[in-house]
Amino acid sequence: MNSPESSMKQSGEVAAARPSGRQPVIVLGTIGHDAHIVGSSVLRFAFEEAGFRVVFLGAVVPPEEFISAAKESAADAILVSSMYGMGRIDCADFGDKCKEAGLGHVKLYLGGILVTDPEHWPETEALFKGYGFDRVYPPQTKAETAISDLKKDLGLSS
């Protein structure tokens, strides 16, 4: 996980934007019984490039492992990918579990192919926000969107 030079420079800039000077940390992986790893890999490199420290968990990650990794890394955000339409099952109590684990302050982002039914995005988004996610993204969302949102949410940019 050696960061390329550009990422080092970026990380300095991003970290410098915070009072603590600490590089922001995200936990990232594909939740549940989902073996898709390409999407989260793309996000991993994009976030590293943008100066974030990425704790990458890979695919087929139980919800509890996101939470454990977020505690150990004092993560600023957890980014959950779900590509196989079973998001409802895997994510229904994710926000509650995070709160219970003392991670109520951690930003929760979710994206991917979240449901198998014909998509009515506003309903899907509302459903998953109800599960405790701060931001929910439809398929085809660009990594830059999530990066820019997270910088905003963490107070790293205006």
Partner: peptide, 10 residues
């Protein structure tokens, strides 16, 4: 022990 490098400090 506790915390990955750059992780939890508290």
């Amino acid at each position: 022990a506790g915390g990955i490098d750059g992780g939890d400090e508290e």
